[in-house]
């Protein structure tokens, strides 16, 4: 089972899981804040709404389209990756 880091905390998740599900199962909500400051979470689950964006290994991706992989470093958009 892949082991990844969710905002600095190690997590082991079953293969075939999306990064979105890993974030959701870890209770990391909201995923981002909107321009006017509203809390937001994933909406469509299929790659069209862009609400689920997260930073995976330094790149901003749609987490619902991104499968988990061994060693990934995952952060929510506004959480400071530099600690």
């Amino acid at each position: 089972m892949p082991e990844l880091t969710l905002e600095g905390v190690r997590a082991t998740v079953p293969p075939g899981t999306t990064v979105l599900a890993a974030l959701q199962n870890a209770g990391l909500s909201p995923l981002r804040h909107s321009l006017s400051g509203g809390a937001r979470g994933a909406l469509c689950g299929m790659g069209s709404c862009y609400e689920c964006r997260a930073v995976v290994d330094g790149l901003t991706v749609r987490s619902c389209l991104t499968p988990v992989r061994e060693g990934q470093d995952v952060w929510r958009l506004e959480v400071n990756c530099d600690g």
Binding site: A22, Q24, G45, C64
Partner: peptide, 8 residues
Amino acid sequence: AMSKGGLD
């Protein structure tokens, strides 16, 4: 879709 992607 989220559930099929592993959401518990």
